[in-house]
């Protein structure tokens, strides 16, 4: 117990802007999904910096689970896919299989410059292109890599779009 008290004394100072975005996200998730948004990460040829920032979102400093976002182990459990990196020829089959394994309706988020088609790997023999060349991308979050706050803002942007569509459908029906 003495050992634990070593690390449990200091509280994390959080970024205010991040907290505000997170609270908005929580409300949107409640409104659209009821409880939580489950995302599956798919690396199709990144430089690993985007993965690191995604992992950082789950660590105590950002702790994105507080706002209802969970990263799941299987595409079969996922509401959405976060694609990182350019699409390499060597990953194309696995990328399509992962997308197909997700139940519909499903969201696709392209994360980072390479996945968005603005990175340095858009040319050359080894890549097909960016995420939207093989998958229906709903939102692009650029950055080299995007920061945790930018990723959170991007996820919020997808949900805002869905919410708008939902309320329009509601009006029409």
């Amino acid at each position: 117990m003495k050992a634990l008290s070593n690390i449990l004394t200091k509280k994390v100072t959080r970024d205010e802007e991040f907290e505000c975005l997170g609270i908005k996200l929580r409300k949107d998730i409640d409104c659209i999904f009821g409880r939580s948004l489950q995302l599956r990460e798919l690396d199709t040829g990144s430089d690993n910096a985007t993965e690191i920032e995604l992992v950082n979102l789950t660590t105590p400093y950002y702790d994105i689970e507080r706002f209802g976002v969970t990263f799941v182990a299987s595409p079969r459990h996922a509401d959405g896919l976060i694609v990182t990196g350019a699409i390499t020829h060597n990953m194309a089959i696995a990328a399509k299989k992962t997308y197909e394994a997700m139940p519909s309706p499903k969201i696709v988020i392209a994360l980072g410059d390479d996945a968005c088609g603005t990175g340095i790997f858009k040319e050359g023999y080894a890549v097909i292109g960016s995420a939207s060349d093989i998958l229906p991308v709903d939102v692009k979050i650029p950055g080299n890599p995007p920061s945790p706050k930018e990723i959170l803002a991007g996820i919020l942007a997808v949900l805002e779009t869905i919410k708008k569509k939902k309320s329009q459908q509601h009006l029409h029906s």
């Binding site: 040829g45 020829h89 080894a126």
Partner: peptide
């Protein structure tokens, strides 16, 4: 490995 082969050396 090499699933992420992006052709860096040629690039």
């Amino acid at each position: 490995v090499f699933y992420k082969h992006r052709g860096i050396e040629k690039l």
